[in-house]
């Protein structure tokens, strides 16, 4: 990967992808299946953050909530309402898992925005597992609840009869593309945002190398980092929201396959 580019004799170093490297937390050995890595570290932090908010924050069980309890109740109500509204009341038994997904993604995204942090959700392996779990679960639920009637999802009754086989092919393809777009959307958004911040960060020390252009470029790049960072905070939440709401949409298809 050509990440080093020489400018003005001294080096301006571009390593936008280095932040995504998985490395063992202790020592320098190879990364095995059970090695404790930076992935482990940040996932444990995610779990601790969730525990702090949803368990410790609500430990007082106050009728008039404090700050943490308000946020916890807000998150609970937000996701529960989303499940009920988008997927229907009969999807509420699956609410704990959807809540798990949402809390994991939103906290991974936000923790990943800390400077120097490792963003677990920027890895396709991670998001692909999340999306495949949803995909498999939705398919299984669909067939368990409706048997072969679930295949009616692909047979668009509203379309004219000659069109239906063609539409069925398109529907099947779009059904199997779902986990791909579902996972790559999250990983791509996270990775792109963080890489862009890193690229701008690499331009920031230009003033140390060539003072002339640097006086213009360095403030501009710092400004750009700030702006992109603000955008990333928004994106971190919106992507978690989008992942969750799409899960609800897919779940609705499994519970009510009729078009």
């Amino acid at each position: 990967m050509a990440t080093d580019s020489k400018e003005g004799g001294q080096e301006l170093v571009f390593h936008p992808m280095d932040q995504f490297i998985v490395k063992p937390l202790f020592g320098d050995g190879p990364v095995g299946l059970f090695t404790v890595t930076n992935v482990t570290f940040w996932m444990v932090l995610t779990v601790l953050a969730i525990v702090a908010l949803l368990v410790l924050g609500t430990s007082s069980r106050a009728t008039i909530p404090g700050r943490a309890q308000s946020i916890a109740e807000l998150a609970y109500g937000f996701i529960r309402k989303m499940v009920a509204d988008v997927a229907g009341k009969d999807a509420l038994p699956y609410f704990p898992y959807i809540m798990t997904l949402f809390m994991f993604i939103v906290f991974s995204n936000f923790l990943g925005l800390l400077p120097g942090a490792f963003t677990t959700t920027s890895h396709i392996a991670v998001t692909a597992v999340l999306a495949m779990l949803v995909f498999v679960a939705v398919t299984v639920i669909g067939f368990v609840k409706h048997g072969t009637g679930f295949l009616g999802l692909f047979w668009v009754g509203a379309a004219p009869l000659p069109l239906r086989p063609i539409l069925a092919v398109i529907e099947v393809i779009s059904y199997f593309v779902r986990p791909v777009s579902h996972s790559i959307r999250l990983a791509g958004n996270m990775m792109a945002g963080h890489a862009v911040i890193k690229v701008f960060a690499a331009f920031a020390p230009l003033v140390l190398i060539s003072t002339g252009i640097g006086l213009v470029v360095t403030p501009l790049s710092i400004l750009a980092i700030t702006a992109i960072y603000a955008l990333e905070i928004l994106v971190a939440f919106i992507q978690a929201y989008v992942f969750t709401i799409l899960t609800c949409v897919y779940l609705k298809d499994a519970l009510h396959p009729a078009h």
Partner: peptide
């Protein structure tokens, strides 16, 4: 690295 990530992800979830 994928195996490691998937393993820890499943544990976390």
């Amino acid at each position: 690295w994928m195996g490691n990530q998937i393993f820890w992800l499943v544990v976390t979830l």
